[in-house]
């Protein structure tokens, strides 16, 4: 093996690049072939139409229950996105607190909500909380929505809180000290100096979590929340048709997550403090 050679022990940069391209092509072709087979199956395999287009058209009609489910997850997403980010600020601040009690409680909170599955949390809230009441005496008669909002908020506040903590801890301590030395209180320094900068650092992680939040709404199907997966299960059990409702549900999720992901990327670029140097 030559010391001056361009090739390392495994592969040269050029070989690596070609391998990467080849792998990407293979994946793209496989996916393309799969989609073609799926959407054109009626033409490819005689008598075997995987997507029932008639049913798909029916399910996509404006009067379809799928829109209600779609609006429901949009609403619960928007509401819990705002609430979990706001609560996340307090979780993040608790995590960096110098008061051991506050920091300890915040840590336990995060450990619990990151350390147990969301499915467990939603069940604990929806089935567990009413169990404290005598049968028939639980006062909230439409508990599905409150349970969904509370569970999603508690869970995702833990993640945004950690993202924000990371954003705060990546700042030089001099920022806080400079602000305090000017006479700002801890709260003033946090609000005006630390948090605005920490936010920018945290935007990619928080944005990533919001995308996961959209997908977590699917787990609400276990508490009879009328969302898209329940709609799919319903159609499937009625019609024994998998692909028509699957295609519809997939498209519905992507109409939320694709724009959201573009928004997160854009916000991440705008927020990147290193871009401040540009005029």
């Amino acid at each position: 093996m030559s010391e001056t050679g361009t090739g390392g022990p495994i592969a040269s940069d050029e070989t690596f690049r070609r391998l990467g391209m080849a792998a990407a092509l293979v994946v793209a072709l496989s996916v393309g072939a799969f989609l073609a087979l799926l959407f054109l199956s009626g033409h490819v395999i005689p008598g075997r139409q995987l997507i029932n287009y008639g049913l798909l058209a029916e399910l996509a009609q404006p009067s379809s229950d799928y829109y209600g489910a779609y609006i429901n997850i949009l609403q619960v997403f928007l509401l819990t996105a705002v609430m979990s980010v706001i609560c996340g600020v307090f979780v993040g601040l608790g995590r960096i607190s110098k008061t051991p009690l506050t920091a300890g409680i915040a840590r336990l909170y995060v450990e619990f909500f990151r350390g147990t599955p969301f499915l467990f949390q939603i069940m604990a809230i929806y089935y567990g909380v009413p169990a404290f009441f005598e049968p028939g005496t639980f006062p909230l008669t439409n508990f599905t929505w409150p349970a969904a909002i509370v569970a999603l908020t508690l869970n995702h506040a833990a993640y945004s809180g950690e993202a924000l903590r990371g954003g705060i801890e990546s700042l030089p301590t001099g920022q806080m000290e400079a602000a305090r030395s000017l006479g700002m209180s801890y709260v003033q320094a946090m609000r005006n100096v630390v948090l605005p900068q920490a936010w920018r650092n945290a935007v990619p992680a928080v944005g990533n979590d919001l995308i996961i939040l959209v997908k977590d709404t699917s787990l609400l199907s276990v508490i009879a929340f009328p969302e898209l997966i329940s709609q799919f299960q319903y159609t499937y059990s009625q019609q024994f048709e998998a692909w028509a409702p699957l295609v519809l549900v997939g498209v519905f999720y992507l109409t939320i997550t694709v724009p959201l992901s573009a928004l997160v990327n854009y916000a991440g670029e705008v927020a990147d403090p290193s871009r401040r140097a540009e005029p």
Binding site: G174, E177, Q188, N192, V193, R276
Partner: peptide, 27 residues
Amino acid sequence: IGMVFQSFNLFPHKTAAGNVTLAPRKV
């Protein structure tokens, strides 16, 4: 008591004027 640090510690998200006005305005 005014303090000036070795590493400047300016607030990077504020302009020069913004750095100077922040504490008088907020405090």
